[in-house]
Amino acid sequence: MSEPTTNANPAELVFARRRDISFQDFGGEGLLVVPRQSLQIVLNGTSLRLLQLVDGRRTVADLVAAFAAEYDAPSAETLEADLLAALAELEGHGAIERLPHD
């Protein structure tokens, strides 16, 4: 799955969890189940936390701010790039979807 190709500023992108997925925290890592694709995969801590935070309202900028507040994060630019890569991966698994830009 490629990274977002929209012309919109990546920081303004908004993602939502798809309704048919399930996920659970197993003590640091998570288990993601995507019935549509008969997929069961392990999420690392970053992807798990992202999935918990993605709610159809928070922008990528909000997610970057949340991670910066919770973790000893690298620079905002690096963090944003890392999170966009993780979001693209979750989108590729069918766990989240990008909402249309206003």
């Binding site: 003590g27 392990v42 690392n44």
Partner: peptide, 14 residues
């Protein structure tokens, strides 16, 4: 690497 089996073992221990 953490696998689904690893998570199941964790669930068992807990």
């Amino acid at each position: 690497s953490i696998t689904v089996s690893t998570l199941m073992e964790r669930a068992y221990e807990q």
